[in-house]
Simulated assay, not measured.
Amino acid sequence: MFACNSDVYEASVMSNRSGQLQRILACCMAAAVLLCSPYAHALDVPGPLVDTDWLEKNIQQVKILDIRENLESFTESAVLVRKRFTGDLRIRRLGAHIPGAALVDFLNIRTSRDIDDRRVRYMLPEVTEFEELMQSWGVNDDDAIIIVYPGMSNSDATMATRLYWQIKFFGHENVAILNGGMARWLLEERAATLEAAGIVTGNWAARAINQAIYADSKDVTDAISSKDVLLVDTRGPGLYLGAYKQPYVRESGHIPGARIFPNELLTSNRPPVLFADPGDIRRLAGALGIDPDGKMITYCNSGQWASGSWFVFHELLGNKNARVYDGSMHQWALERRAITQMKME
């Protein structure tokens, strides 16, 4: 399961091998029972985030979606190193997965759309497209879904929040994210495997579309005019000010009137990457002139990072007036709308 280059770590693994093997077997058997039993019943997730203890205890009753960009790592060994003097375990390379998990290719969960004769990338898929994706991952209508992200960086945490937002948009409420992701699971030496589970096509279907968490260019234009909805730019200061831009964004800068709330503030900065305490987020938002309870639309370059701020404000802080601008700066600039440069607002 793990690759290791530390004699101290090898010794600690040998001394605990019997117990770890029992946990691995128990976890794999539980996952097999869940996949094969027609009587499996989903429980309700306790909130938008779950911890590793909760997931290990309830693994028989959930559907795990492991989202990552490096698909090969799903069946490759992780590399962990135990520090010789402190005994701390560090993760050098992510690998393996939780038994029973379905692999989700992050690059495949969004699509391109033609909007007013413009080809806009990284957008929500159509209903039928997303249903096919969910079914291909083995998701059923009544599943409790747990999303696992790599846990190695702030950016990969927002892969999970983007998928979470899309699942919520299409009406499925029983979903949560594993706080700390796969990195935390590995560092706690919980059962993991290199063997991909066989996936049985699910019957998941979209329900009532949740337009209340979605914003388009018109909504953003209205927010600028009315000034009663705050635009929250979740990118760093270089992108916000226009010092540079992503290649797929036509112009540099930010949407007029937007306040900056850098995405890096949402999580810790080293593996396992954990979501920040909601109280800290509330204080950070206030320090940047953002009312965490006010009406807001979050955006970034493509709608990925924006989902992270939406997740924190809407799900963790309970602000039901937070929305994501799906097209974000890519669509805004493509439509040649007003952009502000070299100015903090």
Rank of each mutant, 00 (worst) to 15 (best):
M1L: 03
N5K: 15
Y9Q: 09
N16H: 15
S18N: 10
G19D: 07
Q20G: 08
L21K: 12
R23K: 13
R23C: 13
A26N: 12
A26C: 11
A30N: 15
A32C: 06
A32L: 13
V33K: 11
L35S: 06
L35N: 10
C36F: 04
P38Y: 00
Y39Q: 08
Y39C: 12
A42S: 15
D44G: 03
V50E: 05
T52I: 15
L55G: 15
L65I: 09
R68M: 15
L71H: 10
E72V: 10
S77T: 02
T86D: 04
G87P: 03
L89V: 08
R90C: 11
R90Q: 04
V104L: 02
R113F: 01
R113A: 14
R121P: 02
Y122F: 15
M123Y: 01
L124P: 01
V127S: 07
V127E: 12
F130R: 05
E131D: 04
D141Q: 04
G151I: 05
M152H: 07
M152C: 03
R162T: 11
L163Q: 02
W165T: 13
Q166K: 09
I167N: 13
F169W: 13
G171A: 14
V175Q: 06
V175I: 09
V175L: 10
L178F: 09
L178C: 05
M182V: 04
M182A: 14
A183L: 10
W185E: 04
L186W: 06
E188Y: 01
A192H: 12
G198H: 04
I199A: 10
V200W: 02
V200G: 08
V200L: 07
W204C: 10
A205M: 10
A212E: 14
A215K: 10
D219T: 07
S225V: 07
K227L: 14
L231F: 14
G236S: 10
G238N: 14
L241R: 15
G242C: 10
G242T: 14
K245L: 03
Q246T: 02
P247N: 00
I255M: 07
P256N: 01
R259P: 04
N263K: 01
P272W: 06
F275R: 14
F275C: 06
A276K: 11
A276I: 14
D280Y: 08
D280G: 00
R283C: 07
L284D: 15
A285C: 10
G286H: 08
I290N: 12
P292N: 07
G294D: 02
K295L: 03
M296R: 00
Y299K: 08
N301H: 02
S302I: 12
W305S: 06
A306L: 05
S309N: 13
W310V: 14
F311K: 03
V312M: 15
V312P: 03
E315D: 07
E315C: 10
N319R: 04
K320V: 06
D326C: 01
G327R: 09
S328E: 01
W332D: 09
L334D: 15
L334R: 06
E335P: 02
R336K: 14
A338F: 03
T340Q: 12
T340K: 12
K343G: 06
E345M: 09
